[in-house]
Write a protein that binds this DNA or RNA. Structure first.
Lengths: 208, 208
DNA sequence: CTATTGTTCGGATTCAATTCGGAAACGGCA
DNA sequence: TGCCGTTTCCGAATTGAATCCGAACAATAG
């Protein structure tokens, strides 16, 4: 049964289990990440795991929530400075921090992110998507010419999904003759040049 | 043991198992897709499955290979006509066919594609990536001004991954107030406007 | 038609996920 | 401090899926 932790020690246990989930995934891979392994790493019995999580999937969801919280905190902290930058440096800065976060603890979060991309789990990425939509809105408010763009929702969807998945995939791949810097500059260039081209088009034909 | 099929009937069995894998995934979801289910749907005993596939994961790999083969065939057939189009209609046409393929048989392939995005499996997407890189090369050969673009490898990587993941994610989501047409036009616009902007930049400063 | 090789099968085994009935730790209170 | 109700912890027992394996069935060469 999913119990609500009442005492301090049980909160510590929950936390340890979630962290153990990341560690197990990182060091043993998805197939070897059994409830027993997770419990062992967390230093608790298997039964304890089921006191707080109805099943293994719930542990993954908690891991997701944890990572999401960290990402949200990071982006919110960055937002005030991001909105003052040009598009290219804004994107590069954001992606750089994103990478740093994913690489913390020997890539613990990255490993999870790589597994969380599949359909049933990626719905939980929606919080991130919402957050980035908000970032774009804030950015547009600070750069009012962007509010003239008509299909901002569609393009936001594309830029967000395209960037996030591409970045995670790239970071998850050891091979690849493309550096992260090239990738993030490319993404920045792609986004910036779209915005510039679209604005130029609007200037050329103000009333279409 | 992974046996090589010698007789016709065993090939039929393998094929039936792979197809049953798609059907099971589509109708029962990932968790309910057990070896017994797959074997039942294929109309064979569980043991038969293990004659040709060392484990369940191998069935998924075979499904991947099957889908990859179909996609490669489709793109190759399309390639001659694609290289003659402008970028926007080219992208839209390609994505339209991609969608049609994924939606065949009530979305049987799409369901699989949604699950195959995660890290351990998406490495098998490399064949698709290679193919699309080749398409871009062919396209550039037919539109020589594009060969002036310096960072084509990086941008190809971005466009390919960004588009594929974004499309699969969008098609997998029932909700979303964005239509497929808007999405594919957006992707086409993004790619085309980048290429145009970059070429214009090169024209402005021929020797940088 | 029969020996040999290929194919199918499903019962037996193994192991991970989940359950459950207490044991142990805690926190207040007399 | 010693007692009691509550919270937490636990690991043996259960369940079911993945995988193995040897017997039975089918094809086919000679």
């Amino acid at each position: 049964m999913a119990r609500k932790p009442q005492q301090e020690r049980s909160k510590a246990t929950m936390q340890a289990i979630v962290e153990a989930g990341f560690i197990s995934l990182q060091t043993h891979g998805l197939a070897q990440t059994t409830t027993r392994h997770i419990a062992d790493i967390a230093g608790v019995g298997v039964g304890s795991l089921y006191e707080y999580f109805p099943n293994k999937e719930a542990v993954f969801k908690a891991m997701n929530a944890h990572l999401t919280t960290e990402i949200v905190a990071m982006v919110r902290a960055l937002m005030p400075s991001l909105v003052r930058l040009e598009i290219r440096p804004m994107v590069i800065r954001l992606l750089g921090h994103f990478r740093e976060l994913l690489n913390r603890n020997d890539g613990r979060y990255l490993k999870y992110a790589g597994f969380s991309m599949h359909a049933e789990r990626s719905r939980q990425l929606e919080a991130i998507q919402q957050l980035l939509v908000e970032l774009i809105m804030q950015y547009a408010l600070h750069n009012p010419q962007l509010t003239r763009l008509r299909n901002l929702p569609v393009m936001s969807y594309i830029f967000i999904h395209g960037s996030v998945f591409t970045i995670i995939r790239h970071l998850s791949e050891p091979n690849s003759n493309i550096s992260f810097e090239q990738l993030s500059e490319g993404l920045a260039e792609m986004i910036a040049s779209y915005a510039e081209a679209e604005l130029a088009k609007l200037d050329a034909a103000p009333r279409s």
